[in-house]
Amino acid sequence: MMTLTSSKDTGRRVRGAPAAAGVKPPRGRAKPSGGTRGQGLVAHVFLLPWMIGMVAVTAGPLIASAVLAFTDYDLLSPPQFIGLDNFVRMAGDERFWAAVRVTLVYVLVSVPLQLGFALFLAVVLDKGLRGLSLYRSAFYLPSLLGGSVAIAILWRQIFGENGLVNHVLGWFGLELGSWLQDPSLALSTLVVLNVWTFGSPMVIFLAGLRQIPEELYEASMIDGAGRVRRFWSITIPLLTPIIFLNLVLQMISAFQAFTQAHVVSGGSGGPLDSTLFYTLYIYQRGFVNFDMGYASAMAWVLLLVIAAATAANFIVSRRWVYYGDE
């Protein structure tokens, strides 16, 4: 393994053709003598807790919700099978489509912003400055507050009619009302909230940066590569599995964004459904209107959409994500 990290030639490989990074060993050598099937047994020993969890904890509710999607279930009386009615109803439900719009906009805008922000700060806070751990902690603080009840009040304080943001805008002669009560602005405050809590992807990026062998940088420095060049030719390619990971995780979590919208809008998704996130609507149908069949159907539609988006991500990832094990 030392050959990988110490040879000058590695740096060149990474820089030149990242897709082929790492020595691609003859596959046969990587496998134990028993071949593919031989590791099946061992793998299942490792997977024992996961399998128990899957069967005992996860599968039941998962299947239950799948079944409920085809029923009329008010939580009180036994579910009634109604075939595809829930799905048909969705097609004609204005609020459903409002929720779809809000969620898509949110995913498309807030995920890239948050990830860009997180990556940028992770690189800045990676090394080379005193007190970095202090800065990291400070930047992580907002994320610690999470979806706490305090957020609702803080956000009103910042984006309310006499809040901080309007105060600052006032210096430039802009007079706005409460952002949270304006249907064209309310969603943007939740995007800001998401970007503000960029701590989690930042920490993942930091961890990913630490995985990059120092020797690669040394090698390329010997080659005379500058800082910017090193960033694009080593950091970014080697970080791609982690960028991909963050992209998938943040995308999934943005599709499912709930707590912050719930807290900030007081559960209504208002004004005029402008912050009615998909899961918030699921929650309203299930927990407020006792319409759990419909809520389950909506949840499975969401699952299919997220799965498709994730699969697309995985397929596209083959073009830009470089694994050390390939």
């Binding site: 009619e161 009302g177 409460s178 949270l180 304006d182 208002g270």
Partner: peptide
């Protein structure tokens, strides 16, 4: 106003 009282 709705804005001033922070919601309906």
């Amino acid at each position: 106003s709705v804005s001033e009282q922070d919601g309906i």
